[in-house]
Amino acid sequence: MDVDRRQVMAGMGGLAIAGCSKARAPDDRALATENSAAIEPPALPATGAANGVNWASFKQRFMADDGRIVDNGNGGVSHSEGQSYGLLLSQAAGDRAAFDKILAWTEAKLARPDVALYVWRYDPRAANPVADRNNATDGDLLIAYALARAANKWREPRYAARSRAIVDAIATRLVKTVGGRMLLLPGLDGFSTAARTTINPCYYVWPALDLFAKTGNAAVWRRVITDGEALIAAARFGAHRLPTDWIDVSNTGAIAPAADKPPRFGFDAIRVPLFASVSGRSALVEPIRTWWRSMPIEQIPAWTDVVSGQSAEYPLSAGGRAVVSRTLGAHAPATLATDYYAAALQCLAAAFP
């Protein structure tokens, strides 16, 4: 969705991460369901303590005073995904003041008035910073997940209510049955045609989905999880059997690399092994793990074309190496990257137990 950002990131081996309207008071959104604060997520460690990457450094570099997480590699824009990372990391570190600042900015600038989802991109340089009103489901998932964790950590019903509203919106607006599988759409608009639906496999944030399956709409989430696991297990292409950043699912259920995007295991798909490994889904990780083990970590390319076999001429960023390290149990980069996307991925790789 974010063409300019991906072009910038391709040159620096970063990570592609996607991200409205007027602010509304938290109690305008939705009432909590009876069990919205009852699920106790597993505790997250203080972010990155074991890997030399920490929230304090990330906060100092990338969080503005008003709570906006700034993408310094893409003209200072922000995304719902970046805001979700800030929420998750500040919650893990126990920094409630930062959490509330990030949440307040996110609700004021990105919250949609029509549905409990978020505009995916904010460009402070534009006359209308949120001209594209579409959402990005991975950002929405992680915001809901961070809010659920915060609700339990700080016993705050307001967080639980908002998390439940987001989860319900995703379940009702962003889940679609295609080819016999219940799929998680990347956004409200632009991903389905009469013949096919385009999916981003890294939007299956398994720790969040596992938590949602214990709350309302449990039957929907269990089916999304089961069908999503089958989808990603089948989405293995090329000599190394790697997933691509985007895949197409036809109305008959056939799976292929997305027709209108480069068929690469790259800046999006690298999050597939991260979310699978931290959630205990080792079978989904194995082909990637096998390929990564075939070369020194510093030689792993930033992307690989699964059709042609061509690879990037530059290696993974520090963030990408952090994901490899988390997946393989190797030594992670100790210094926080100066580029936002690489630093975000470093911190995310260290954030899950």
Rank of each mutant, 00 (worst) to 15 (best):
S80I: 04
T172Q: 11
W105Y: 15
V8Q: 10
R241F: 10
I270V: 14
A97H: 10
G139F: 08
E34M: 04
A64D: 11
I39R: 06
N217E: 14
D71C: 06
I225C: 02
G13I: 04
A219P: 01
R5F: 06
L211N: 00
F212W: 12
A350Y: 01
W292V: 15
A116I: 06
H240N: 15
D95Y: 14
N51C: 11
T137Y: 13
H331Y: 04
L328I: 13
S325V: 07
G228P: 05
A344E: 13
S36K: 07
A194G: 03
P353I: 11
D210C: 04
Y203G: 11
A18E: 11
A269N: 09
R68P: 05
A93H: 07
D248E: 12
T177I: 12
Q91S: 14
R281K: 15
N200Y: 01
P207A: 00
T252C: 05
D260Q: 15
L147D: 01
I232E: 01
G14A: 06
I166C: 02
P262F: 05
Y203V: 10
T290W: 03
S36Y: 06
P296S: 06
C202I: 09
R321S: 03
D168F: 02
A349H: 07
R326S: 08
L242I: 11
D2M: 03
V272D: 00
M295N: 03
L87H: 12
M1V: 05
N134E: 04
S279K: 11
A16W: 12
I166Y: 06
I39W: 07
L147A: 02
Y341H: 14
L328F: 10
D339F: 04
R112N: 03
V167P: 00
G48M: 05
G52W: 06
A343Y: 15
P41T: 09
S80G: 04
A349F: 03
S279D: 14
K22F: 14
R321P: 09
P124Y: 07
E286N: 08
P157G: 00
L184V: 07
S277A: 15
